[in-house]
Design a protein around this nucleic acid. Structure first.
Length: 957
RNA sequence: GCUCUGGUGGUGGAAUGGUAGACACGAGGGACUUAAAAUCCCUUGCCCGCAAGGGCGUGUGGGUUCAAGUCCCACCCGGAGUACCA
């Protein structure tokens, strides 16, 4: 009987569905294991062969774990909110819910054909109100909590209010936008609006005027990870910085825990490194530099006079951050960012015009312009001076856009000798450079002769007052001690990680459960969730620039009746306007893994029992491109829920594997430049400058040979094409590129499933190479895998009787190899192991069921359909999915003799067979007796003999 | 620039200090067939040689070791992340 994959796969997919074979229950006595894929955004283009790669790998692992006796949670769902559906809606008027629904149906159809073991009863969709109820709920908890640094966790804002009423801000160590200092009396006298304003300074979800990435092309603000090189990741539109009132998540409060948590998880070093870089922790000092308010700074009394907290009439000062406090004696100028509020206060009249012009110019530059011109030095002198608190020198204050508003305090002390950016600036404006660090003790050179700064973090301090002669590290500590003693600064840590901007001026996202009384945001009661996305007449922004929700007629909150009502009823007494922004894509994807544990719960996000049983994700599989977005946000979200006592593990994803991208393999034809209708076969192209390479659809190319007839039909302009052939064929060139429609190199999994079957596709995707590695898709090789499955099938056509020691040995070798390979996620080598096994068993012939039955279980994770079919043909009932993983029995692997490679001076010369228990002496005798040995050993005596049992013999002579 | 990766036949890749190139594709040759498909067999890293055999080979140059694709040092090239983060 032929291997009829279409019929077999259809039959068993139906069976699995009807019997609910993949349905997972929570809480049985089996050990638990949670295998998760990053859920897809259902795009209109459907899946290409790159998408299922990770799903296949995780499916193999999930099935394997199940066969090993685990209760395996393996869910799937959709990240269904997002920009493409909405852009499409703007263009066509088609409601995004409709296109999303349609795309999901298509995805599901494609996924179903591949035979995954997902428990679809647990499916979630981020755009489903039953799901986003909990996204909104979590947002409200973030709104109602602040981060207490002393407690090291999130605490209720209600506690904060009590604290303020009793003690004011005293003794509070909390994450905040701005350090505030007030007494209980002050707090108690403030009105509601003022208090709310103060509380907003601490909330983990807060509304504030912040510089945001404004993307006019998309009509929305974007988070940092959604902008690359000054362009939006989606759509590639330019992004500019703009001061806007936006919701943000105070993710920076968790920066330290996000760094620390990386120690506990089993991720690749490169991904951990990406996250560490993104979080960007750096240790250093915050130092207050006083302004030179009197003109003769050089004769001012001691620096103590400037101590802001002790001076009865504090000298105006500003705070800088430095990672090199040891270089404070080398400061020759200060730089403020163009956004710094001090600029307008300190700029002297004669510099005012120039400074204002520069600041305006700098602020209006697009992010892209600024980044493109990073090498160009620009800046302007304010006319004002600061005083170096340690040297009492007068130091000019400049403004430049190389100092960024968002990092540290937006102000720096410039040490041009030891910072390359300061150096470039100093050279450009002819400012002094003073060496304060040298590699060797007391050895200095003239900085005027330098062509670059000396940024090394090793060496010794020079020209540096009381730290001269100390090692850099000691000098750092000494300077910090000194400034702490003087009360003008302290040791501190800065993070590059910014708070996540959480508002989007878009329609297709979760509405904020927030309404406004007198411009002050208030939470909708949790019992009233979900706040459902309203219908709108248009998906574009409104005429007066409001987000699309501004078009919604029914979008106001009736506080008394606790209901959404018509906007015209707004009276700002009991009916108030609702927030018009929606949440970003990462909102819905940040906690979905927890919801899968208990997806139909309408009382809470997930039950205590469910999370207590499943704990966290054991294995998470997805793309490395989420390193700075989703994987940071989800860890933050989880840590917050952990603080609330909901999540039971501090880290959500224990082990994480990044599947590599599958690249496209594009095919090219070469059109002659001299004759526009002539196409030259690759081998006949003498000079690539004479031809134009043109992308050609990979579907009309087989094994690099072009199907000429189909090429002529492909596009009208090629209808009369002429060809210069080699050996009667037109040979195409190829190149590895991104898989994309425009390059005609997209391979769709459905076509391959129809031609070869899902099992072949699954095996081939794994056979291509290591899961983590990027690799090109080449359909050519799929034939080999398909042939293997046919051979595998044929083994079961004539089942032999009686035991064969040889066949059992092959089986157990394969069990061992495949088990090891799965454990280390080396699926490409397990496919080879199966091929080797089948080749050997094919040679032996007439293999019995004591081999074939375990073998069908062994291959079930990889090729579940054929495994199920053959398992049933052998007379088994039920499903192979619930069988037991075969154990390797070492007794079958014992060898009587071992083939030893024999080396002379480390070079392999020949092999000899020795009994398995041979020792070094026996081995040496055997080697000497071997006829080939004379040639290498001659009459010399071996100087040394290395004998590694069962491995190798090496003779040194 | 910094950080992380990777560099092995015509191609994808294998080899957890111990026979480099498993397995597969492609290519060449053959069997079966009226023919095609399917299937099966042989050859296939490079160089010398009719052969037996030998030499050379894992980006480059050094080193450690009885033994290095694998470990160490320096460099070259590709890919990814990040980018004035003080």
């Amino acid at each position: 009987m032929e291997y009829n994959f279409n019929e077999i796969e259809q039959r068993w997919q139906n069976y699995w569905r009807e019997k609910g074979v993949y349905h997972v229950g929570t809480g049985d006595e089996r050990p638990h294991y949670y295998v998760l894929d990053m859920f897809p955004y259902p795009s209109g283009a459907g899946l290409h062969v790159g998408h299922p790669l990770g799903y296949i790998a995780s499916d193999i692992y999930a099935r394997y774990k199940r066969l090993r006796g685990y209760n395996v949670l393996h869910p799937m769902g959709y990240d269904a909110y997002g920009l493409p559906a909405e852009q499409y809606a703007i263009q066509t008027g088609q409601h995004p819910a409709v296109t999303t629904e349609r795309n999901i149906a298509r995805y599901r159809e494609q996924l179903d054909k591949i035979g995954f073991s997902f428990d679809w009863d647990r499916e979630v969709r981020t755009c489903d109100p039953k799901y986003y109820k909990w996204t909104q709920w979590t947002f409200l908890q973030l709104f109602k909590h602040y981060y207490d640094n002393a407690a090291g966790k999130a605490m209720p804002v209600s506690e904060l209010e009590k604290r303020f009423a009793a003690h004011g801000s005293e003794g509070l160590d909390a994450a905040c936008t701005e350090a505030l200092d007030f007494t209980a009396d002050e707090w108690n006298q403030w009105n509601e609006a003022r208090r709310q304003q103060v509380l907003m300074n601490y909330r983990l979800a807060y509304l504030a005027d912040t510089y945001v990435n404004w993307c006019a092309g998309l009509g929305t603000v974007l988070a940092n990870d959604e902008v690359v090189g000054g362009l939006s990741v989606r759509g590639g539109y330019p992004v500019e910085r703009k001061l806007m009132r936006q919701w943000s998540l105070r993710i920076s409060a968790y920066a330290q825990r996000l760094v620390d948590g990386l120690e506990q998880v089993d991720w690749t070093d490169s991904l951990k490194e990406i996250q560490r870089n993104w979080i960007g922790r750096s240790e250093g000092a915050a130092v207050w530099f006083p302004l030179d308010v009197k003109s003769n700074a050089n004769v001012l009394p001691g620096a103590q006079a400037y101590m802001p907290q002790f001076d009865p009439q504090p000298v105006p000062s500003f705070e800088i951050f430095t990672t090199r406090p040891d270089t404070i004696f080398g400061v020759t100028f200060m730089v403020l960012c163009p956004e710094h509020e001090l600029i307008s206060e300190i700029t002297t009249p004669e510099h005012k015009a120039e400074v204002e012009e520069y600041v305006t110019w700098a602020k209006n530059r697009s992010e892209r312009e600024r980044q493109a011109e990073v090498k160009k030095v620009s800046g302007v002198f304010t006319g004002a001076y600061a005083v170096n608190p340690l040297t009492e020198e007068k130091i000019p204050i400049w403004v430049s856009d190389y100092v960024l508003a968002g990092y540290g305090t937006g102000a720096i002390m410039a040490v041009p000798a030891h910072d390359s950016r300061d150096f470039a600036f100093a050279r450009h404006f002819n400012l002094p450079v003073r060496q304060v660090v040298s590699l060797e003790k007391n050895v200095t050179s003239d900085p005027d002769s330098w062509t670059e700064s000396m940024d090394a973090k090793t060496g010794y301090s020079v020209n540096s007052g009381f730290v001269t002669g100390m090692k850099v590290k000691e000098a750092m500590a000494a300077v910090i001690d000194k400034i702490e003693e003087m009360g003008i600064g302290h040791r501190t840590v800065n993070f590059r990680l910014r708070d996540a901007i959480f508002s989007r001026q878009r329609y297709w996202g979760e509405p904020f459960p927030i309404y406004y009384k007198d411009n002050t945001p208030y939470a909708i009661p949790e019992e009233c969730l979900p706040l459902e996305l309203p219908e709108v007449s248009e998906f574009k922004p409104t005429a007066d620039g409001e987000p699309p929700l501004g078009h919604a007629a029914r979008w106001a909150w009736d506080e008394k009746n606790r209901a959404v009502v018509d906007k015209i009823l707004i009276d700002n007494k009991t009916v108030f306007p609702l927030e018009l922004s929606t949440m970003p894509g990462f909102a819905g994807s940040s906690g979905y893994y927890l919801r899968y544990m208990d997806p139909r719960n309408d009382k809470s996000y997930f039950s205590k029992e469910a999370v207590g049983y499943w704990q966290n994700v054991d294995l998470y599989v997805g793309g490395a491109e989420h390193g700075t977005g989703h994987l940071i946000y989800a860890r933050f979200w989880n840590k917050f829920l952990f603080d609330l006592g909901m999540a039971v593990k501090d880290e959500p994803f224990q082990k994480l594997i990044n599947q590599g991208m599958i690249q496209g393999r594009s095919s090219f034809v070469y059109r002659s430049k001299a004759d526009n209708n002539l196409f030259v076969s690759k081998g006949l192209v003498k000079n690539m400058n004479d031809v134009t390479p043109i992308h050609v659809d990979i579907n009309i190319v087989d094994n690099d040979v072009l199907d000429i007839d189909r090429f002529r039909q492909w596009r009208p302009e090629f209808a009369n094409a002429r060809f210069e052939l080699e050996d009667g064929k037109y040979v195409c060139g190829w190149e590895i590129e991104k898989m994309s429609k425009s390059m005609f190199n997209v391979q769709n999994p459905d076509d391959l499933v129809a031609r070869y079957g899902a099992d072949t596709l699954r095996l081939y995707e794994m056979f291509l190479g290591p899961v983590e590695q990027a690799k090109p898709w080449d359909t050519g090789g799929i034939e080999g895998v398909h042939r293997f499955l046919k051979k595998f099938w044929r083994l079961y056509e004539n089942v032999g009787s009686g035991e064969s020691k040889e066949a059992l040995k092959v089986l157990h070798q394969t069990i061992k190899k495949v088990t090891d390979d799965i454990e280390r996620f080396s699926f490409n080598t397990s496919v080879s192991a199966f091929m080797v096994c089948v080749n050997k068993l094919g040679e032996l012939g007439g293999v019995g069921r004591e081999v074939l039955e375990p073998l069908s279980v062994l291959i079930a994770p990889f090729a579940p359909h054929i495994a199920e079919e053959l398992w049933h043909q052998l007379g088994n009932e039920g499903t192979v999915c619930a069988a037991s993983w075969p154990e390797c029995d070492e007794q079958y692997l014992v060898e009587d003799t071992v083939k030893y490679p024999v080396q002379f001076n480390g070079k392999m010369r020949f092999t000899i067979d020795l009994p398995a228990d041979a020792d070094q002496q026996k081995a040496l005798e055997a080697v000497k007796a071997a006829p080939e040995a004379a040639k290498w050993l001659g009459d010399k005596e071996p100087k040394k003999v290395i004998f590694v049992p069962k491995k190798i013999i090496n003779i040194v002579c």
